[in-house]
Design a protein around this nucleic acid. Structure first.
Lengths: 226, 226
DNA sequence: ATAATTTTTAAAGACTTTTTAAACTTCAAT
DNA sequence: ATTGAAGTTTAAAAAGTCTTTAAAAATTAT
């Protein structure tokens, strides 16, 4: 997956940024014009856009507006115009952050990381974690404090759903529909039996569950207290 | 709902920021020390933190780390130290953005909006609060001054309804219909019994209720009179 | 095909919540 | 002050929910 889309008409500048981002472990794509970039955004998905404001035909503000119409991707504007008006215009057109040129490439990287972290994006890894439990949806491996737990299918799906909705009280019906599917002749009460088996495996003390809590008259809740 | 927590030891500066944020439609709370702020964060929930780096005892970086341990709330650092090292340290300790002092208050506002938009919308996720009580409809967790209260279903629904109509006198019939549903053979007088259990749990002194007041000949009212 | 594993069912038991009813207190009007 | 209606408090009964088993059924692997 290509992470970063750099829209920058100065080839030297663009290359510096791209090289550094790659060195930092991202993958990056450089694009000298807004038109090209917009086309690229149609086909590929990026984690973030670094957008130069001074561009040949279509300027950064127009570009920003155009990207926003299509995608809710984080946009970081880069500009030599350090005045208030320019910055405000940047934010108004939908930018997430604005950095003055010339900038420290390290600060730029930090900003990129901060934005990616916040937009939940970046990592599309399929790893869920909380309360010492890690669940990897692609390998279907679940660990507690690093040790692998052997869950069977229903237990895995239950845990996955609960972890995807970590902190929420999930109703038993919702759980049942999510794991068994809406049209199914199984007794919904089977949910609690599987929750039992699951607790047997993931809880330190299955009789006083701390990871999967019961929410009376509602259902269950995975994880943190608040 | 209090949106913005401003941690700033210079009272004049703090007040300017607070006033402007309020003028912009946010609600804001000013806090001169990190210690106080951390305590406040225990009990209340905020949409964003504006964090001054130069603070009396505990500095901004430490504070940032401490907040991050507790909450995944957006943090915007404000600092007169404009060098690269300081900024990187800010991002490393978990800040989402960093603004150099002196700054344009309008740019600060734009940054606040951008961050809020990004972090799950800034919209309250179904949290109700008042009188030191916080009620989260999605996790169904209720806290008073940060400590979790264990309410059962009817108590929760009663409190939710009252908080949704905070400051209003809600008639007993209205409450009964909202919580029990219109067609139900239960005695409506059971409402007062549940109010009692609820007061037992949320009031400091259940015999002289200050959070859920009785409105004679009408019903009950949550929170302050205006 | 047989064995092993997983999933479902059903039912008992433990526990929590909700209701009821009755005694008690407070309020406001006479 | 007295009175009756409105509100509170309590404890115990009733209703309901969740847990835990064990065994049967279904599925999967050998």
């Amino acid at each position: 997956m290509t992470d970063i889309l750099i829209i920058e008409d100065d080839p030297e500048m663009g290359q510096i940024i791209k090289d550094f981002m790659i060195k930092e472990g991202f993958s990056a794509r450089l694009c000298p014009t807004a038109e090209e970039a917009l086309e690229l955004l149609e086909g590929e998905s990026f984690g973030i856009v670094l957008l130069d404001v001074m561009l040949p035909k279509m300027d950064g503000y127009e570009t920003c507006t155009a990207i926003r119409k299509k995608r809710d991707i984080p946009i970081l504007m880069m500009s030599a115009m350090t005045d208030e008006r320019s910055k405000l215009l940047g934010y108004e057109t939908g930018a997430d952050d604005y950095i003055d040129k010339p900038f420290s490439i390290k600060v730029l990287t930090a900003k990129v990381r901060a934005l990616m972290k916040r937009s939940g994006g970046g990592e599309q890894s399929g790893k869920l974690s909380g309360c010492g439990i890690e669940l990897d949806t692609s390998s279907r491996i679940v660990t507690r404090d690093g040790a692998e737990l052997k869950l069977n299918a229903k237990e895995f799906e239950l845990l996955r759903y609960l972890m995807e909705h970590s902190g929420e009280a999930v109703s038993k019906d919702e759980l049942f529909n999510a794991v068994w599917g809406c049209d199914c002749f199984t007794e919904p009460s089977t949910v609690s039996v599987h929750i039992r088996w699951l607790r047997e495996k993931i809880e330190r003390d299955p009789n006083t569950p701390e990871i999967i809590r019961t929410v009376w008259k509602v259902g269950y809740r995975f994880g943190e207290q608040r």
